[in-house]
């Protein structure tokens, strides 16, 4: 486990690398999210202070883009594609089934911190619609019936 001090050292290194290039904020925030897994307030403060901009600017950017998260995510992130191709092939039913099985709404994380459920934009794998991803793994042509089997892979 990398401790927080180590993570902040990494963050400062990234900031130093990007600081002098034009438009450094987005690349730094991408890297920060990579390091911490999300963007906690003290990380945003650190970024704002090092770049000499206000915290509200950093917070404004962090909340504008759906890729940036202010909350820690679960151990496994399940993303159900809600692009048009997946939607017309029934991805809503898959999302509903997951929501029921996990007892959380899309965007939420289970109490045990095991799963985060997201409804996501088109993943571009429309040939496999409806598609969901668990972390990096892609599951294609999913039906609601298959949800328990998919969850059981990650459950123990």
């Amino acid at each position: 486990m990398v401790d927080n001090k180590e993570k902040f050292a990494q963050l400062r290194k990234v900031i130093a690398e990007h600081k002098d290039e034009p438009g450094p904020l987005m690349p730094i925030m991408h890297a920060a999210q990579e390091i911490f897994g999300y963007l906690p307030m003290d990380v945003q403060i650190e970024i704002a202070e090092s770049l000499g901009i206000t915290l509200s600017e950093v917070y404004g950017v962090a909340t504008f883009y759906s890729h940036f998260s202010l909350e820690p995510k679960g151990e496994h992130v399940i993303s159900v594609c809600m692009g048009t191709a997946c939607y017309v092939k029934g991805s809503q039913a898959v999302l509903d089934k997951l929501s029921d099985s996990l007892g959380i709404q899309p965007g939420g994380t289970t109490k045990d911190g095991k799963f985060t459920l997201l409804a996501t934009r088109c993943l571009g794998a429309c040939g496999l619609a409806p598609v969901l991803t668990v972390d990096e793994a892609v599951h294609g042509r999913v039906t609601p019936d298959e949800v328990p089997a998919i969850l059981s892979i990650y459950e123990d």
Binding site: M26, H30, S66, H67, R121
Partner: peptide, 8 residues
Amino acid sequence: IRLGAGAF
């Protein structure tokens, strides 16, 4: 290269 962050 600049990465987007999920804003249509």
